[in-house]
Each structure stands twice: as structure tokens, then as C-alpha cells.
Design a protein around this nucleic acid. Structure first.
Lengths: 172, 172
DNA sequence: CCTTAACTTCACAAATTTGTGAAACTACCG
DNA sequence: CGGTAGTTTCACAAATTTGTGAAGTTAAGG
């Protein structure tokens, strides 16, 4: 717990209230967990989100969250696969840094192209094997249409968000 | 209604290919699991979706899925809490039936009002405790705005879906 | 009221998931 | 080329989750 010397690097401004950060991290990670994400990736992600620079090294993450390098490695693999975090190698050092890109991560969250495809495919197969004329088949076909609809709408919604975002935070 | 010897009741038409049904159930349940739902609720839900009438009794579910009444009970509790399934008591019998309402369940899926609130709240608290002027605070505020935006957009999108749905399946 | 079918709850055993330490690997740096 | 900081992989122990059987509860039907 007590972190030693002077300095966390990635996240800490001078007067950061470490306890508040920790509270946020666990709380926010909890929401992710409820949404079906494993705990460790959720915690790592929350830590990044709560860091000032938006990027931390593996060692920093391990220290802040009190977990082993192995755990960080696994979490980070998951997060990069989900495109919620990107990995960057700081040139001139052999340390990777993991970064959350401001608007990118929640767009990835909303997009979920892969997931949508899985739903549609499972439903399509259901319609085929049960028969489009059966009541169950009709039910599935309707659901499938819904997912297709959402697949069309999401990109439009994200486009509208970019406009709104510009209005709200435009002159950063 | 004797549903003795021959027949599954809730779901089975005469020539239903039970094997195809089982395959769909496990496959579709898998997609749910990937999306963070526990396996048993996912299986129960898939079974209902694949049933002809869209409704099954506890006993029928237990038999089709080869699980105990206790397991069905737990799964059904979860599903009703999520508003993905509704419980009805058949008058004149003491058997409950569990029903999936055609368009209702995926609207519930897309709505997730409760979940949205949790995200917004966690983020709001993060902004407060880290300070709106800090980089991390700004990042969170932006994310929070995004969730608010989505919260506005979802109902509109669902409204558009209802129109589209009428076009596609209107004269049922 | 009593019986009993149906559903729910509970303690526990089984199965799965999770995080760790240690070994293996990679590729900077001298 | 070798040394070494950093990351990843792996086998395993711990913790959590899951489903079961059995007991408990509820209310329909006589």
C-alpha cells in the first residue's frame, strides 16, 4: 500500500489525492465488471483513465493496483484487443506505455462491430435451421432485423456525437 | 392440457428438429455469455426465444436444458429483473410460464437505463473528486457527456426502429 | 383446513476463473 | 555478442462462481 519514494510517474500531479484516485478506480472498475468485463482489465483501464497523462507503464500500473507484472500483462492484452487502449514503446527506453485515447475508447465501446456480427450470425443460423415460416423463426428474423438496424444507426450516432463534442469541448 | 408422454409443450411443433433447436440454444447462449450474461440465464432465454409459442414452464425448461428446478428458478429471476422475460401465472393451474415478448426484449437490451445511470454517476464522482480542471477530470467529463448523449439518442433510435419494424413486419 | 403441486432458498461440492511466482523470451545497450 | 530491463508464458494454488439436492414456503383444490 504505502508507495515508497516520491513519485508515481504516469498519473500523479503534485497534489493529487491518491486516495480519491483509488476510490474512483475501484468504483469505475466495478461498473465495468457489472457490464461483463473481467476485473483486472477493468481496473487497469480505470487507472489509465484516472491518470493525468492518460498513459502509464506496466510497472506503474502494477504498483498502483498492487498486482504482479503477469496480471498487468494479461489485462493489457485484453484491452488492446478491444481497442480500448493502445500500446506505445517509448523510444530510447525499453518500457512500453499503455495509453487511453480520449474519444477513441468509448467510441470503440459503442461500436462493437465484432459483437454485432456475432449476434446477427447466430440469429441468421437460427432462422435457417428452424425455418423462416415457423413462429420461432419469425421471431428471430425480427430480432435479426433489429440488430441490422442498430448496425446502421450506430455510425450515424457517433457522427452526431463528434459534432456535439466539437461544440462542447471544441476549443481545447 | 395433458402434456404427458409424447410432447414437449411450450416449444415443440410436430416436426421440429430438436437437435437444431439445441444447437441454436447453445450457440446463441454463447453470444450472450460473451456479452457478459451468466450461462444459465442465457440458456433459458435462448430456449424461450427458440420456442414456438415464446413461452415455457419451469418444468419444460428444466427438461429441455437438463438442469434442476433450482437452476431454472435462479435464471428466471435474473431474466425478469432485466425485463427480458415476463412471468405469467396460467389461471386454473399453479404453473408459472415465462414468456419472451417479441420486440420488448431487445429494446430492454438497448435501453439499459439503469446501467447508463451507473456509468454517469461513477464518472461524475470521478470528476468531482479529481477536479474538473485536472487533465483526468477533463477526460472524464468528456466521457460523461458522451454517456449523456447516448442516453438522449437511444430512445430516439428505438422510436425510429418501431417505424422501420412496422414497415417490415407490419401486417403480421 | 389439509394436501399437494410448484416454486424458492440454502448449504455444499464441483467446476471454473483469477492472480501469482518463476522460468522463458525479447531486444535494447554497452 | 553478452548483460540485463522489461514483458510474456505457464503450472498451480486460491478464490469465486455455478448448479445441485433437500428442506422450506406458498397457495390452489379438494
Amino acid at each position: 500500500m504505502g508507495k515508497a519514494g516520491t513519485g508515481q510517474a504516469g498519473g500523479a500531479g503534485a497534489g493529487r489525492n491518491e486516495e480519491a484516485v483509488a476510490r474512483f478506480v475501484e468504483n469505475f472498475a466495478g461498473v465495468f465488471v457489472e457490464a461483463g468485463v473481467q476485473r483486472m482489465p477493468a481496473r487497469v483501464f480505470a487507472a489509465l483513465l484516472a491518470s493525468d497523462s492518460g498513459a502509464m507503464s506496466s510497472a506503474e500500473l502494477g504498483e498502483q493496483l498492487q498486482v504482479s507484472p503477469a496480471a498487468v500483462s494479461g489485462a493489457v492484452r485484453y484491452l488492446t484487443q478491444q481497442h480500448m487502449v493502445s500500446r506505445e514503446r517509448e523510444p530510447g527506453t525499453r518500457r512500453d506505455r499503455y495509453r487511453v485515447h480520449n474519444n477513441q475508447w468509448y467510441e470503440a465501446l459503442a461500436n462493437r462491430d465484432q459483437i454485432m456480427k456475432r449476434w446477427e450470425e447466430a440469429l441468421r443460423e437460427g432462422v435457417n435451421s428452424l425455418g423462416a415460416e415457423t413462429p420461432a423463426g419469425r421471431r428471430m428474423a425480427e430480432t435479426q432485423a433489429f440488430f441490422e438496424f442498430v448496425g446502421e444507426e450506430l455510425p450515424l450516432m457517433l457522427e452526431r456525437w463528434r459534432v456535439r463534442r466539437e461544440e462542447l469541448f471544441g476549443e481545447r
